[in-house]
Design a protein around this nucleic acid. Sequence first.
DNA 1: TTGAAAATTGTAATCATTACAAAATTAAAA
DNA 2: TTTTAATTTTGTAATGATTACAATTTTCAA
Lengths: 139, 139
Amino acid sequence: MNNNINIQKKLQSLEIRPSVQRMAVMDYLMKHRTHPTIDTIYGALQYKIPTLSKTTVYNIVKTLSESGAIQTIFIDEKNLRYDAQTEQHAHFKCNSCGMVADLPIKELQVKVKNPEKLSIEELHLYYKGLCKKCKNKHK
Amino acid sequence: MNNNINIQKKLQSLEIRPSVQRMAVMDYLMKHRTHPTIDTIYGALQYKIPTLSKTTVYNIVKTLSESGAIQTIFIDEKNLRYDAQTEQHAHFKCNSCGMVADLPIKELQVKVKNPEKLSIEELHLYYKGLCKKCKNKHK
DNA sequence: TTGAAAATTGTAATCATTACAAAATTAAAA
DNA sequence: TTTTAATTTTGTAATGATTACAATTTTCAA
């Protein structure tokens, strides 16, 4: 698979050694835009890499997140979630089923009062509500 | 204190019985716009209400949050935080000291693609960066 | 005054995450 | 290639926030 080569290069460009485990996590996140939790990632990869440890998955997402290769999402009270899409976009969480989706931003214009001169580096946009399925059920 | 009467009325209007504990938590959140954690709230109130249990604080913020009296903030990987300000405003978290501040919104214009017809109910805006103190230290 | 419902409390359980040390792997030096 | 050091992975144990639950207390209405 030459997809692996891309991931390998991507990690190397961030000075992250492309171990089997790291490539697998990165690959999984790039192919599954579902904002998975650690458990989901671990559950999906443990068959491909039978020796995989959940601690390793924790270590890897930490490394990837600190280097900016992926994003950590704080939208759920239970688990952190991870996202390989690092360009700016909003997230939506269904308050009923817990599903998290991407919402591409078409237009964004925000101005906030900042008298304390806080040094702003990132902006995160989270929407909450009901997904289509849950909305219909609740009727 | 006639402040208590306001809080009492506020809770009653939301059909929440104004117990001593609930009034104290609501009062604390209204007076301390610091987005405290459960531990902070409990730590501050346990002297005034010596019988107070941390479980009660959990129960109360849940009740208040479900009724819309307060907001639950998902901005920190460790703890949930609570905010009595329920009008729309953004939050800022310092990536160094962890402090959370309010940022009043002067102007907001967002349009997102929503092909899945997700039923959007709320929007949360989170900024992250460095507060003034931490910014200066890091130099 | 009494009894039912609601709220509070303390303890135990759960569960996500982190700490840590040992084992395995990789890269670099000789 | 062999040796050595650094890095990564792994499993287990610890931590810490939150929840479950049952007992107690308080409140409210009959």
